[in-house]
Amino acid sequence: MKIIEGRKITKRFMGLLALEEVDFELNKGEILGLIGPNGSGKTTLINVITGFYKPTSGKVIYKNRDISGLAPYKISRLGIGRTFQIVKPFMELSVLENVTTAALFGKNIAMPKPKAIQIANSSIEAVGLHDKSSYKPGALSIAELKKLEIAKAIALSPDVLFLDESMAGLNPKETEAAMELVLKIREQRNLSIFFVEHVMKVVMGISDRVMVLHHGRKIADGKPNEVVKDENVIKAYLGKRYKEQKNA
């Protein structure tokens, strides 16, 4: 069953076409991986879905409702959480306060503060940061900051989670742990997850399905092992590697 889908999403900046008629769908309980070379429009797509950009044309349908162009705060209150590629912790607040803020404003906007703190604590527990909940983000490692980002997103009690490169900058061991974390929170919280990554291996490891963007267009969508063999995908990635070799 589809929980969120995009229909022919197009986004144009000045003359530049960042997304061209991209369709996608995410089913309930599914983990959908979005890959593509740098500049292929992955973050732009997430920004359109979560309301940071208005689509030039096309629609985003969430639970049978057109949410395209709604403000981000409305979208997040409907049960859509997201993390940012560049982590955005509140530097002057403790981990607990960071996450409490999200819980206070999430899907249950009228929640009293003690309840919000309780939810915040359980979110922090879920990502494994409970022994650092009184720390300020300045004292956390990159891996921990990425976890904090996820804790903030799940404290909204979302139904759908968008993870924008939550594993970029992590070492292989941390990446492994992060992948397990994603699987675990899906299980525990009954989430549907849409995640962006440009490391192929991660995507292949945990995705139920994978879609590929290249130059703002969707060039493949299917089971991970099928997508890797797709000719267009190979070309897009090899093309990039070829260019890198040439530049090096």
């Binding site: 705060y73 997201r82 940012f84 955005k88 803020t101 903030k152 909204l156």
Partner: peptide, 12 residues
């Protein structure tokens, strides 16, 4: 602290 993050937390 961060307006974009705030917006994504459901803050108007």
């Amino acid at each position: 602290e961060d307006e974009d993050a705030a917006r994504m937390m459901g803050i108007n």
